[in-house]
Design a protein around this nucleic acid. Structure first.
Lengths: 121, 121
DNA sequence: ACTTTTGTGTTAAGCACATAATACAATAAT
DNA sequence: ATTATTGTATTATGTGCTTAACACAAAAGT
């Protein structure tokens, strides 16, 4: 699975978003064990320190916790995961609508464009 | 007019996007003169070198050109501006749909959420 | 003619990010 | 008991972004 990291933004931020999305999408089970820092660093072709920094941020958010020598785990708090999902979705929607309106699109035009794009496959 | 620059991404990139959007939205007329580097730098509370870098990128894109000692101007090529508009819109739509689908939303759910948000005012 | 304004270039400093190379203590695995 | 693996911490190095402080040539404004 390619990680598609670009150099326009801090890599550790992109990793945070990636793992966050994967947790929300259910690719990691609540309470489940995450691969080790070194393992994930290698998979993402990234320095272990960078991956460690990303994990630290995920812990700060609360989606992940660590047991010093046994590994790192996804939170078992399903409500928190669900809450993160709706928060992120709302943010993305607002961001999208704001940009589109700044570009000069009306609400109906936005809906039309979206329907048109969704029909394309 | 606040510029709302954050520290998560390079400032010059954010300025590029901001001016690009303003050109597309028609806040600057095609062929019209832009404020000077020093002027806009002050307005955005940014170092002139940073603003200069942003302008250089806008020139590279082709939305702007400069006459060495008289100032900087918006392109008169209306088709290029229109083209930039649809390209940006398409990019934003694809980005939005991709993220929402990764979060686990179906197409109909996305449309529902969007309609729901648009009705909120 | 003189001054101001224009875009542009240069050099130096500080900062965050990323990589590299280690090291350590605690636990799991054997 | 020994080894391997875990998260975590440290130091050093390189790079890009940003600010700061200039400088210059060319044109516009006076």
């Amino acid at each position: 699975m390619a990680w598609n990291l670009d150099s326009d933004r801090p890599i550790f931020s992109q990793i945070v978003e990636r793992i966050q999305t994967d947790i929300i999408a259910g690719k990691y089970e609540p309470g489940g064990k995450l691969p080790s820092v070194r393992e994930m660093a290698q998979e993402a072709s990234v320095n272990p320190n960078t991956m460690q920094k990303a994990f630290a941020e995920l812990e700060r958010i609360g989606l992940v916790y660590s047991r010093r020598t046994s590994g790192r785990f996804i939170t078992e708090d399903i409500k928190m995961i669900e809450s993160a999902k709706t928060t992120l979705a709302q943010q993305e929607m607002n961001r999208f609508l704001e940009i589109m309106q700044k570009l000069g699109y009306s609400r109906s035009e936005i809906l039309d464009l979206l329907n048109q794009t969704l029909k394309k496959n």
